[in-house]
Design a binder for these strands. Structure first.
Lengths: 353, 353
DNA sequence: CTGAAAGCGCTTACAG
DNA sequence: CTGAAAGCGCTTACAG
C-alpha cells in the first residue's frame, strides 16, 4: 500500500505554484468574478495537475455558513402513522450531520388538503433555503413548486413518489409497478388454479389513485404473464372509515368469497379487521406498510404478507443525498429505488425501516 | 420555531466565563493532565451550563490527525463472491467520510486458513490504528485478538457474526436463529402435509458449523412450533466441490426425493446446479445470499427463495458506527441486527445489499 | 499548573 | 483584477 504524495497540497501550494495569492486561488476555485482569464487558466491547470480536493471541514469552518435544508412531508395523521418513518429517517440523518454544519427544518402538510401543501411551499420559498427534500404528493402543485425551485437554482430531492421529468438531484423511493408485480408473484404461491383474487383500492383522494393504479397494473401484469387461470376481481372504496370498508366488503363477500385479497396500500388493516370481526376464514391477505395496526394482524395470522419499502431509509438517504450534493461531493445516485421487502410474521421483528 | 441561544458558545466563551485561558479549557475538555482540581471543576461546571458541544470540524482541522481504521475481513475467493458486498459497503462509507479526516485500510484473510487471520491481526496491532472493524470468523483467534485490542483501549466493531461477550462498540449482522426460523416459515407455505424436507449443510470448515447449526435450529424450531407433519431429513457435506455435492445428493435422492431443500448457506447454487443438470423437477429450493450464481438459478426458477441479510450495509454501517464512536458522537446502537430479506425472482432487481 | 502564540486550510472583507 | 490581513474554533508546542 503506497501512500499518496500527501505533501501539503492545499490552496497555499496552488498559490505558490501559480505565483498568485491565495485570495485569487480562492476566487477561481469558487468560481467568483474578478479574475483575468489568463490567471484563471493557469490556476485551473495547476489545480488539475495537483488533483486538488478542497478541504470541506476548513471551508465550512471559515465560511461560518450553515447549510439549511427544508423537508416538506405529510403530517402524521391519526389515520395513518406512515409518515413517522420518513420523519424519523430524516431526523436520524440530520443528527448525524448536525456537527458538520447542516440544519434541517420540517414543514408538514395535510394529505387531504392541497392548500396546506401550497401554503408550505410558499413559506419555504420565502425562507431562503439551500436545498429542499420533499414528497411531491400533489402532482400539479409540486410541479409548480419545483419549477420555482429550479428558477432559483434550488436543488431538491424527491422521496416516496417520483416526478420523472423534474430536474431532481435524486429520487428515493419505490418502483410501484414492480412492487405490485411482486405481490402478484406471492399470489401465485398462495393461490391454486381456478381460485379467486380480489384487488382492493382504499383511498379518499383521487390524487393517490396514480400510486395505487401503478401497483394494480404490476399485480395484474404478473398474473397475466404466467397465464394462470385465476379470476381477478377489483373494488375501489372511496371512503376510508372502517364502517364504509366493511359495508362494501360485506356486499362483495356475500356474492362471492375470494381466496386472496390484495390491498394496494397500508389500509390493509381495515380489511384484516373486517375478516377477523366477521370470522371469515380461509382468505389470504397481502397489503402494504410496516405499521403498528398492520403488524398486529400479521402477528395473529390475519395478514399473510406485508410489502414495505423502507420509508425510514427513504428519509435518511434523502437528506444525506441532498447534503452530499450541497457540499459538492463527487456523485449522488439519481435514481435510488428502494428494495421491495416482504414482511411476514417471522421476520417483522427484524425489519428496519 | 425558536432558535437556540447560539451566542458564540465555544472554547473562548468558556475561557472568558471561567477566567482562564483557552489552553486550560482545552486541557479539561480533552481530559489532559496538568489542571488543578479547582479550576477543572469550575470549567466543567461552565461547560455543563452552556451545554457546550465541541466543534468537530475545527477539532479535526487543528489536530491534523487522521482517524485510522483497519478493516479485517475474508478475501473474496473464487469459491464465493460473498465478501465483495461488505467490502463495497466499507468502501462506500470510507469515501463518504474521507473528507472528514478518516482513512481505512483493508486486511484480508483466507477463510480456510486460520493462520492468515492470526498473521493479519499481528500486523494490525503493530500499525497503531484508532479502531478496528472485523468479521470474527475464527472464534478462538478472534477472542485472542480482541483481548489484545481491549488491553490497548482499541475500540472495535464486529460484523457478520457476533461474539457476545466481547466489549464491542457494536455488532452489525444477522440473527442466525431467526433467519433459519424464517426459512421454516416459508417452508410452511411451500410444502403440504406429509411431504418431505431436506436440510443441507455444505461447508469445509468446522468453524463455520456454528453458523449453520444456528440456522438449522431456527428452521427446525419453526416447523416444530407449528406441529406440521412434515418429515425433516438432513445431510452434512464436508466437501465443497460440485462433484462431491452431486454425488452425495444423488445417493440421497435415489433413496428418497424430498419436496423441498433448505441449504443453510450460499452454497445453494451447487444444489440448484444438481437439480438442473439432473433434470429433477418438483423440488423447491431455499438458500442464502445474493450472489451472481444464486441469482441465475433464482431467475430460471430453480431456486425459489434466497434469504439475505444486507452484507453491503453491514460493511457500511460497521465503518460508520466505528467512526461515530471515534469522534465521540452521542450514541452508537450496540446491537444492530440486519433485517432478514426474502429475495425472489421478482424483487431481486431491487435488492440493495 | 497556566497562558500566549502560532497554525490547521480555508473564506471574508478591505485596500489598492 | 489582485493581494494581504483577520478570523472560523479548535490543538499544539513552548515558555514560565
Amino acid at each position: 500500500m503506497k501512500k499518496e504524495q500527501e505533501t501539503t497540497k492545499g490552496i497555499k501550494e496552488i498559490a505558490r505554484l501559480a505565483k498568485v495569492s491565495i485570495g485569487t486561488v480562492d476566487r477561481v476555485i469558487n468560481n467568483r468574478t474578478g479574475v483575468s482569464v489568463k490567471t484563471k487558466e493557469k490556476v485551473l491547470q495547476i489545480i488539475a495537475e495537483l488533483d486538488y480536493q478542497p478541504n470541506i471541514m476548513a471551508r465550512m469552518l471559515a465560511s461560518k455558513k450553515v447549510i439549511r435544508i427544508a423537508a416538506l412531508i405529510p403530517a402524521v395523521s391519526n389515520e395513518t402513522g406512515y409518515w413517522n418513518a420518513p420523519l424519523k429517517g430524516i431526523n436520524e440523518a440530520a443528527s448525524e450531520i448536525r456537527n458538520f454544519g447542516v440544519s434541517a427544518d420540517f414543514y408538514f402538510f395535510d394529505q387531504n388538503n392541497k392548500k396546506t401543501f401550497r401554503d408550505q411551499c410558499a413559506v419555504i420559498l420565502d425562507n431562503g433555503y439551500d436545498g429542499i427534500l420533499l414528497a411531491p404528493m400533489f402532482e400539479e402543485e409540486a410541479m409548480d413548486f419545483l419549477d420555482n425551485c429550479a428558477k432559483r437554482d434550488l436543488p431538491f430531492v424527491l422521496i416516496n413518489s417520483d416526478l420523472e421529468h423534474q430536474p431532481r438531484v435524486a429520487y428515493i423511493g419505490p418502483d410501484l409497478f414492480q412492487s405490485g408485480y411482486l405481490a402478484g408473484h406471492l399470489t401465485k404461491y398462495l393461490v391454486k388454479e381456478a381460485q379467486q383474487v380480489l384487488i382492493v383500492n382504499i383511498s379518499r383522494e383521487i390524487t393517490f389513485q396514480h400510486h395505487l393504479l401503478k401497483k394494480e397494473e404490476g399485480f395484474r401484469a404478473c398474473l397475466a404473464a404466467h397465464d394462470l387461470s385465476i379470476e381477478v376481481g377489483k373494488v375501489d372504496i372511496n371512503e376510508t372509515s372502517y364502517d364504509a370498508v366493511q359495508q362494501r366488503l360485506l356486499e362483495l363477500f356475500d356474492l362471492n368469497k375470494p381466496d386472496l385479497v390484495f390491498v394496494t396500500n397500508s389500509r390493509v388493516s381495515s380489511v384484516a379487521r373486517f375478516l377477523q370481526e366477521n370470522a371469515i376464514e380461509g382468505v389470504q391477505l397481502i397489503g402494504y406498510d410496516f405499521l403498528e395496526e398492520n403488524i398486529a394482524y400479521l402477528k395473529n395470522g390475519t395478514i399473510d404478507f406485508l410489502i414495505c419499502q423502507k420509508p425510514q431509509e427513504q428519509g435518511y438517504r434523502g437528506l444525506m443525498s441532498l447534503y452530499q450534493h450541497l457540499i459538492s461531493a463527487p456523485t449522488v445516485e439519481q435514481l435510488q429505488y428502494m428494495p421491495i421487502d416482504i414482511i411476514t410474521k417471522e421476520n417483522y421483528l427484524y425489519y428496519r425501516n
